[in-house]
Nucleic acid binder design. Sequence first.
RNA 1: GCGGCCGUAGUCUAGCCUGGUAGGACGCCGGCCUGCCACGCCGGAGGUCCCGGGUUCAAAUCCCGGCGGCCGCACCA
Length: 581
Amino acid sequence: MSKAEKVFSLARRRGFFWPAYEIYGGVAGFYTWGPLGVLLKNKIRSFWREMFVYRHGFVEIEGPSIAPEIVFKASGHVEGFKDVMVSCLNCGAKYRADKLLEERGVEAPEGLSPEEYLGLIRENNVRCPSCGGELGNPGYFITMFQTTIGPYSDAVGYLRPETAQNMFTEFRRVYEVMRRRFPLGVAQIGRGFRNEISPRQGVIRLREFDMMEIEFFFDPEDEDFPWAEEVMDEELNILHEELIRSGGRDYETMTVREALERGIIHYRSMAYFMVLAKRFIAALGIPEDRQRFREKLEGERAHYARKVFDQEVLLDRWGWVEVSGHADRTDYDLSRHSKYSGRELAVEKRLEKPITVTVREAYPEPRRIRESYPEKIGEIMRSLSGMDPEELYRLLDSQGYIEVAGVRLGKEFFRLEVGEERRSVKKIIPHVVEPSFGLDRIVYATLEYAYREKGDRVVLSLPAYVAPIEAAVYPLLDRDDLRGLAEDIVLELEENGFRVFYDYGDSIGRLYARGDEIGVPIAFTVDMRSLRDDTVTARDRDTWVQYRVERGRVVEMVERLVSGEPFEEIARSMGLEKVSV
RNA sequence: GCGGCCGUAGUCUAGCCUGGUAGGACGCCGGCCUGCCACGCCGGAGGUCCCGGGUUCAAAUCCCGGCGGCCGCACCA
């Protein structure tokens, strides 16, 4: 059995996750997170939020999962991810029409209809690559889930394929609410939906999944990013374009400084988020040498991105798998939404020193226009008043006239003003660097790396700060007096906000084994001595080492463990007596 | 979507070829025992044999279709 199978089997058996709708045979690409899975997921989510959002004064929003079609037209998803598919009339295989033509060296303009594609295919006598059969049945395939909004069937909506768009559509308001603080980091954690053609890798590739994304809005000409300083000497494993093209190794290890100097990473902010991503994944128990950042080449990248690094972790069964993506989305999204909505999505940036700019503006002279076109004056003035004076000047300057209401007005109909103006702000459309994480696969990777076997027993060595259940309490024997004391301890831990795995009735070895298997980092056992001196044993999940601790200090011990302190260190600094077994 | 392999208690599986109505291990529940690492003994519960249809006196078993899983191809913003 592969490790993945073992993890899936454990996940199912103990309730981390399992395929959804099992009683109806299941539906590919949909999974249910069970009781332990939800706890683990929540912890990892909070850990991320703490590390990426709160620590930098970023803000989080929560928008709807469904958006009207216009949003995804603006974002480019409707056009970019509506592929024309053709199928082989003989063997039934399906192909993307554009890719098929491209392979044959046939140039096809973008945005052709399915029939036009088929026409080109017939003209060039392109046949099925696998069986040589004739191609037909052209049609669209959109990897977004489509729905309708409200009772009108023509109000098309889509389930978002990424949470990012909410951050762009709501940008103005967030910027305003944040009192125009800039640069601005906006985060969102939520569901994304992709109607994958063939999702197969369990919880690694879902049709509905959780994403944790940040859009960091900044001025590309003045990248003010102080946090980057502290990570300059930190190392990253990068499989960069040059290395890929030379058919090189898995990755090259270099410092952030070097990556920036060599131009492999362009933005300090992106480099910083990549370091953070590395630390985040490492903190979940995945060693640095099992992580890398792979640069996405031209053609692999999404339509909106100029540069992308995928953070990948090495999984037992599937090899390198993406857990986060770091994209330079430029001003693509805000510019597009600005264009489609007609709203300005710029920020005003205060300049350190006011600058003087030359302003060239043109204003119409109504009296002269009336003299020449008395019957059209109303219409002309209505049109001109809606136009930007600077734009008018530019047009007059370049083409010599303005065409409006069917007449050409030359410069003589305008008052031209050229003057100097002092400016202390400039308007910019922010650029965006986006770190984007796939939560479900991160949880899976965490489980896979935590999965250990000790003889024929399974131990989930989850870091204490993400363990779904923080502590276990067992009576050594199933006796009323021992259980009574154990239950008091359970209650005390629960009152302090911890989840407790309380079990009894079996041999102590079996109890320990059950707790280990779901990753409970520490177990307290009440024995006969506990009744005499009010101490219990504290056992470490990974080493099985035990110390005696006073009952009143059990909570303290768990608190310290969960905050990241190693078991042995806690025992030492608390001056605990080691138990020889 | 295509091709190959596969689908049997919570888990892992035997049985399928050569049709006769399901067996084991672990886990689970109860009891006894034990007294710090899935201890031992006794007892027990738990199965629409993925779903639907067909062939047959009779289908887990043979045939067809569907769903799901794994591998390869394609896809993966």
